[in-house]
Deep mutational scan, measured.
Amino acid sequence: MEVRTIKVFTTVDNINLHTQVVDMSMTYGQQFGPTYLDGADVTKIKPHNSHEGKTFYVLPNDDTLRVEAFEYYHTTDPSFLGRYMSALNHTKKWKYPQVNGLTSIKWADNNCYLATALLTLQQIELKFNPPALQDAYYRARAGEAANFCALILAYCNKTVGELGDVRETMSYLFQHANLDSCKRVLNVVCKTCGQQQTTLKGVEAVMYMGTLSYEQFKKGVQIPCTCGKQATKYLVQQESPFVMMSAPPAQYELKHGTFTCASEYTGNYQCGHYKHITSKETLYCIDGALLTKSSEYKGPITDVFYKENSYTTTIK
């Protein structure tokens, strides 16, 4: 009895394709271990004539594949690729409408935090270190965002349907971005203890939790000093293409032309909904596939993004 075979390709990165001759009487799992086709788990399936010449994702289970996976995804987590594939199996079914010149995501599976993050990423200057993220990001900007969303979920250790947080998501993504040249110098002034300067680099240099107003941050924000008295913390120097200011959701007025974009969060910790506000020729609110415009805006804002380049204080 002759062994019926077909020729397929296996890959971990969709760049390096490895030619395989597979036995049609055995499952993919018996031949390769966990195997995925377009995100779908085909591990328990036997090869079919229609699979001839198709590319299958496999887990990096030998040295060659491990090197290829690390170079593309910059992670050695053995569960990463499987999590990416199972997320992709959902995100490829989502709709990605162009809204006001940006790629958004039609609401499904509690994905409003991903839509808000995706919209924000198209408006701030950011370059990702893992080629996987950078490639998928370019495709997302062009309207094909399924891979990018699935990668975000995998890097953030999230599953489809789980509630997510924009600030946490951005923080994970910033860790995989090139923020080497970003720098922030802060000064804390206390009447009792004097003053202390701190220099922050990388992710810490672009994120701040405690106030939404970048102007206020430049002037000074009140913080408790270690001595128990009130101290003032203010920005001395900022070198970065953008800054992200966050605070627990509270009524906040966004003035046209003073910011790049913002995240609105309605609801409580267990259950809520994100919308995205962007400042173009007027203010726009993007909620999944829905767009509304207004000249002014007041609502429960939790993150505001500002364009920056270089700032030095005039406070002496």
Results as ranks from 00 to 15, higher is better:
272 G>F: 02
45 I>S: 13
238 Q>Y: 06
222 Q>C: 09
76 T>V: 13
94 W>V: 10
134 Q>D: 13
211 T>P: 03
83 R>G: 03
198 T>P: 02
158 K>Q: 06
106 K>M: 04
160 V>A: 08
224 P>R: 14
121 L>D: 02
281 E>V: 02
122 Q>G: 03
217 F>G: 01
124 I>K: 04
34 P>K: 11
286 I>G: 00
246 S>V: 00
156 C>I: 06
90 H>R: 12
43 T>P: 03
8 V>K: 05
83 R>K: 11
102 L>R: 09
89 N>R: 13
232 T>F: 05
120 T>S: 13
164 G>T: 00
113 Y>N: 06
294 S>F: 15
74 H>R: 06
128 F>T: 02
70 F>K: 11
248 P>T: 14
100 N>D: 09
73 Y>R: 03
287 D>V: 01
115 A>P: 05
135 D>Q: 08
188 V>R: 03
107 W>P: 03
157 N>D: 08
171 S>E: 10
226 T>K: 14
310 S>L: 14
19 T>I: 10
188 V>N: 06
30 Q>K: 12
286 I>S: 00
203 V>T: 08
168 E>G: 14
85 M>I: 06
44 K>G: 13
69 A>Q: 10
52 E>G: 11
213 S>K: 01
31 Q>A: 14
314 T>Q: 15
6 I>T: 11
35 T>D: 15
295 S>F: 05
148 F>D: 01
11 T>R: 01
11 T>P: 06
166 V>T: 01
311 Y>W: 09
108 A>R: 07
14 N>F: 06
181 S>D: 13
310 S>N: 10
254 L>T: 00
154 A>C: 08
286 I>Q: 02
14 N>S: 12
184 R>Q: 06
278 T>S: 13
208 Y>F: 10
52 E>R: 10
62 D>K: 05
263 S>R: 02
247 A>Q: 10
120 T>C: 14
181 S>W: 11
70 F>N: 11
28 Y>F: 07
61 N>E: 06
252 Y>G: 09
6 I>C: 10
91 T>W: 02
154 A>T: 06
280 K>E: 07
176 H>G: 01
34 P>Y: 12
275 K>S: 13
248 P>W: 14
257 G>D: 13
119 L>M: 06
33 G>H: 10
260 T>H: 08
266 T>F: 01
169 T>I: 10
129 N>M: 09
